[in-house]
Amino acid sequence: MDPFVVLVLCLSCLLLLSIWRQSSGRGKLPPGPTPLPVIGNILQIDIKDVSKSLTNLSKIYGPVFTLYFGLERMVVLHGYEVVKEALIDLGEEFSGRGHFPLAERANRGFGIVFSNGKRWKEIRRFSLMTLRNFGMGKRSIEDRVQEEARCLVEELRKTKASPCDPTFILGCAPCNVICSIIFQKRFDYKDQQFLNLMEKLNENIRIVSTPWIQICNNFPTIIDYFPGTHNKLLKNLAFMESDILEKVKEHQESMDINNPRDFIDCFLIKMEKEKQNQQSEFTIENLVITAADLLGAGTETTSTTLRYALLLLLKHPEVTAKVQEEIERVIGRNRSPCMQDRGHMPYTDAVVHEVQRYIDLIPTSLPHAVTCDVKFRNYLIPKGTTILTSLTSVLHDNKEFPNPEMFDPRHFLDEGGNFKKSNYFMPFSAGKRICVGEGLARMELFLFLTFILQNFNLKSLIDPKDLDTTPVVNGFASVPPFYQLCFIPV
């Protein structure tokens, strides 16, 4: 058959498939802009700032609406009420993970971030239990974070109060905490193996944040037939998995079943207990991918939040002064901060919360999916439909947070200066898919920041009023603009 005829037939089939998918069930789905064949609503979305586009569309179609990214149908949730109703009140029905062709290629359905069903539930339950087990290797997770915080302070001392970009050092600290939990080992910041790991993690975040990856996920045929950065992403992930597998083999040879040292040991012990169960989800494949998931999810998000926190503290020296006064009063100079201190430091706690609220790190979270046909607000959402959640619409709700575009710790303080919780605080998402490392991340943010401010004054290279804190939105995360500062020993 003539190649031209084959091409026309293929394009015609794709067009018909697109029209059929977009028209099927439209009477039951939430409203939304009319999609174009094949490309859907992509032309109506700013790929570099999806969150802003969703906010604009919500003003037209309401808090629940339908979009098509290519052939992929998505239902968008915008605003606290619908997000709570879906992710919390109907948590089980909305607990699936959205379709990610690239991740599915890399992870093969294993791990904790992109798995679904029984596998996801069992691996998540085990990971939560293990991360909360403060007795691994007779050292609590808090001990590990405190140790890394001391190392971080010593690295900052080496800058000798000269101007520096904190990106690298602030990236090393949370990565080392995860390494300590998974591998029972922290690395020197100049260790070549550690630097290679950091390089792969950072490069992957840069790649994932590009519009090209959005295109690959919406048109998965590209993955096999086109060159691009997605190939580098898959190569980096394969490198990390190979490295983790080597460490798993080392653990198998040296493990003491009665004295687990780290996450890998705990997983291997669980595998041993379930070795007679042919349906067990505790396999080497799941261990390797879960460890890679924890490394990827637990490094860049925390380091970016820390980097943004220091920029905001530079911009608002009056806030920094209040935090340091609270540190001096509650902790002093002669001991290290600990998590028990947080309950006695409402202002510092409010500042950490406000940093996370203000920066809105992951504006749309990772997409969910419905696990069955769901009736939601008089609409029928078919099983498997991807759910896109606007966390921006919750964290920047102007009824809950007056002047949401302003950095103001009073958003989390009552009139008496006591810490005030808010149900709208969802930087880790909400419901059954809430970030498994939430507790660890909150511990790291509090301890790293208090250790830094206990030991250093922060000095800006320019007038604080002239510092730009506008986030650089890159399609996946909101990151701070480049800046330098000086760490002046107190």
Rank of each mutant, 00 (worst) to 15 (best):
K138A: 13
V153Y: 02
P31S: 04
R73K: 13
N176F: 01
C175Q: 06
P427A: 14
F4S: 11
A309E: 01
F451A: 13
V472Q: 11
S140I: 06
F412S: 00
N204T: 09
S51L: 00
A292E: 08
K247S: 13
K322D: 05
R357C: 00
N286G: 06
R157M: 12
S393I: 02
L440E: 03
Y225K: 11
K121H: 12
L90P: 03
R329H: 11
I47S: 13
F428H: 05
G91P: 13
K270Q: 12
N418W: 07
P260V: 07
I462W: 09
L310S: 02
Y308T: 06
R261S: 05
G62M: 00
V436D: 02
N176I: 01
I39Y: 05
R108T: 05
I39W: 06
K383D: 05
R342V: 13
R150K: 15
G79V: 00
L152N: 00
N217R: 11
Y308H: 06
A292Y: 15
P404V: 06
K270D: 05
T290V: 10
T210I: 06
G437P: 04
F419G: 02
T469S: 13
Y61R: 01
E354C: 01
P480A: 12
T305I: 04
T283G: 07
P63I: 00
T299M: 08
P363E: 02
F126K: 00
F451H: 15
E285G: 09
L467D: 05
K84E: 07
K190I: 10
G298P: 00
E415V: 08
F94L: 04
N116E: 10
P363A: 02
S303Q: 09
L388K: 03
V370P: 05
G40C: 00
S23P: 13
G228M: 05
A106T: 14
A103S: 09
E104Y: 08
I257G: 11
I434T: 11
S95Y: 02
A441T: 07
L485I: 10
R144P: 06
L201K: 04
R108A: 08
D293M: 04
C266P: 00
V370K: 00
C179W: 12
K383N: 07
S254P: 02
D265Y: 00
